[in-house]
Amino acid sequence: MVPVGACLGLSAVLFGIGLIGFLSRRNIILMLVSVEIMLNAVNVSLAGFSRQLQDQRGQVLALFVIAVAAAEAAVGLGLVLALSRNRPGVNVEDLTQLKW
């Protein structure tokens, strides 16, 4: 039996990694990966809480988060594809048509 504290600790570490990754990376794909790590941190914490509380709702929410993360990744990659068709490169520094 894994203690809930360990789940939350793992979740916090993962969330931190995702957060720092998103803020420091300049490649759109890697930023997307960082966001996915953040969402998975949420899933770990939801599953941990759900186990501790003996309540299913947290796991239901986690399932929805997984589904939505997949949908978001599909849309996001589609948008990046549309962008890279019009011009090479997938770095946010290239996004200069509009003032960032």
Binding site: L8, S11, F15, G18, L19, F22, I28, M31, L32, V35, M38, L39, A41, V42, S45, L46, G48, F49, Q52, L53, R57, G58, L61, V65, E72, V75, G76, L79, V80, A82, L83, N86, V92, L95, Q97, L98, W100
Partner: peptide, 27 residues
Amino acid sequence: NEAAVKYFLLGAFSLGILLYGMSLMYG
């Protein structure tokens, strides 16, 4: 294209933050 990518990146990022807060509220 550029507007969509920017909106998507920051929207997804904010979703992660919001959900983490929600998971704490749940816990």
